[in-house]
């Protein structure tokens, strides 16, 4: 149990936990792992997801309306850990649910559940003192966001405290699909390489095999989020795991393989 990328590029799959329900998220996560996702980011639904675009906003809203709580997501993490001992597991949350539970309590529970790492969307390095201390105490990997707008001094600080991987935000903006991976992403990864000792994963707007390949040319891993969440939204509950499994498998097809296999859903 550790965050490892066994192929290049590695694959990180973000799922909004509890959309459509916790049990289905469990099946989807297992299918994603079995089809090649190295790391699962379990998104904790939040009422006010201000860094997210419409797709994850809707998913988060549905899960909140179902009453899905941070503790439910941690329980789900424990199930996934038991079922897939070697998969990477990251708890992905806005800060407030974590603050409400208590930072130290949260870290203890996340470690107990077998999570490898944590990403807090609205936690910046300067504010992270207690968080980092608690994470260290429980041998959890803090994953921080790095943005195209971050000056070098910030990238350096982000790399110094990140473990597991650094999450390079491919472009300015909220989460959600886009047609191509822009130059911002490669420039950012190049800048991060000067400081990073961990792998660098690129996320935001990565939605198909072509994007994954593009990211693979300069980064260690690609993070797929909104594309999966949109696919889950449009799938029958009973089919969601199968659909996500074959979608993830399709992201791995090598360049030159049939176009229809590589064509992901935007």
């Amino acid at each position: 149990m550790a965050i490892q990328f066994n192929t290049r590029p590695g694959l990180v799959a973000y799922l909004t936990a509890g959309d459509p329900d916790i049990e289905t998220t469990r099946e989807i996560a297992l299918a994603a792992i079995d089809n090649g996702a190295d790391v699962i980011e379990l998104g904790v639904p939040f009422s006010d997801p201000l860094a997210d675009g419409p797709v994850i906003q809707r998913a988060s809203g549905r899960a909140v309306a179902r009453g899905v709580r941070l503790l439910d997501v941690l329980a789900l993490a424990a199930e996934l850990r038991a079922a897939r001992p070697s998969a990477g597991l990251v708890i992905f949350s806005y800060l407030n649910p974590v603050v409400r539970l208590g930072m130290r309590t949260f870290c203890a529970r996340a470690a107990e559940a077998g999570a490898d790492g944590v990403l807090l969307t609205d936690m910046i390095v300067e504010e992270a003192g207690e968080y980092l201390e608690a994470m260290r105490e429980h041998a959890l990997a803090p994953v921080f966001l790095a943005a195209p707008t971050s000056p070098d001094a910030r990238l350096k600080a982000i790399c110094e405290v990140s473990r597991g991987f650094v999450y390079a935000v491919s472009r300015v903006g909220v989460t959600g699909a886009q047609t191509t991976v822009g130059n911002d992403a490669e420039t950012l990864v190049t800048r991060l390489r000067r400081y990073a000792t961990t792998p660098i994963a690129v996320g935001f707007g990565i939605s198909n095999a072509e994007h994954v390949r593009a990211v693979g040319r300069f980064a260690d891993a690609a993070i797929i989020g909104s594309a999966l969440v949109a696919l889950i939204e449009s799938s029958e509950r009973s089919e969601a795991a199968k659909t996500i499994g074959s979608f993830i498998a399709g992201l791995r097809v090598a360049e030159g393989e049939p176009e229809r296999m590589a064509a992901g859903k935007l």
């Binding site: 910046i124 300067e126 504010e127 966001l145 943005a147 707008t149 971050s150 000056p151």
Partner: peptide, 14 residues
């Protein structure tokens, strides 16, 4: 108080 924002906004806040 403090600053709890996505990293993308930090440069702008600074």
């Amino acid at each position: 108080g403090g600053r709890y924002v996505p990293e993308t906004l930090m440069a702008a806040l600074e």
